[in-house]
């Protein structure tokens, strides 16, 4: 019962933080609240038995993302201007989508059901056989690194790619793209070459 209360309290806090993020115009406050939101999510994941996920969310969401967003704000400014559009169309889209999804949850297995379809297919095999096959107590690590090692290789490659892409975008010095703006003269010389060849 206490667990249920903790769950409900944390989820309600998450909802409230999300609404505050939506309403606030000061981006500094928004970024700080998104750190709070990540920390709440991490606590929620602990309550839902996902300790590895909680650990990652606390380190990544509350730590690294907040630092990166602060660094971005230092470069871009921290006030959001009010939008000139009316919010009715997005609001209608969001409400209809939300209503459809909530209607769909009534077909889902109840929260915490041991016989839900998700829990019947491969999970029992991992839980029963992984200790004999891989020999690690932490099933999440054995699935991550051994059973689904190929998947994780892909994820590591995604991080590698993101690192390379950020290097491409921000690695040069500011104003290095002046060369791109000077393209028309280069085109002229190209045309001259063509002319001489003709």
């Amino acid at each position: 019962m206490i667990i249920t209360l903790v769950d409900i309290a944390l989820l309600t806090f998450m909802g409230a933080t999300a609404f505050a993020i939506l309403r606030l115009r000061s981006l500094f406050a928004v970024v700080m609240l998104s750190g709070v939101y990540s920390l709440l999510a991490a606590s929620m994941f602990v309550a839902l038995d996902a300790v590895d996920v909680a650990f990652t969310e606390a380190a990544v969401g509350a730590g690294i993302s907040t630092v990166l967003m602060m660094a971005t704000l230092a470069l871009t400014g921290e006030r959001e201007r009010p939008s000139r559009h009316t919010p009715y169309v997005p609001l209608a889209v969001v409400l209809i989508t939300g209503a459809a999804l909530i209607y769909a949850t009534f077909d889902m297995p109840p929260f915490g059901a041991a016989d839900a379809p998700v829990n019947l297919h491969v999970a029992p095999r991992y839980l029963n056989d992984s200790f004999a096959e891989v020999g690690l107590p932490n099933v999440v690590t054995s699935v991550l690194a051994s059973y689904r090692g190929y998947d994780t290789l892909g994820e590591v490659t995604v991080i590698f790619t993101a690192g390379v892409a950020v290097m491409l975008l921000l690695g040069g010095r500011k104003g290095d793209d002046a060369g791109i703006k000077n393209e028309p003269p280069e085109d002229d010389t190209g045309a001259d070459d063509g002319g001489s060849a003709a």
Binding site: L48, A50, F111, A113, V118, N119, P137, N138, V140
Partner: peptide, 14 residues
């Protein structure tokens, strides 16, 4: 993560 929760269960560390 909500779908993975089993009532009365614990974190998957054997």
């Amino acid at each position: 993560i909500s779908m993975a929760k089993v009532t009365g269960g614990t974190a998957p560390i054997l």
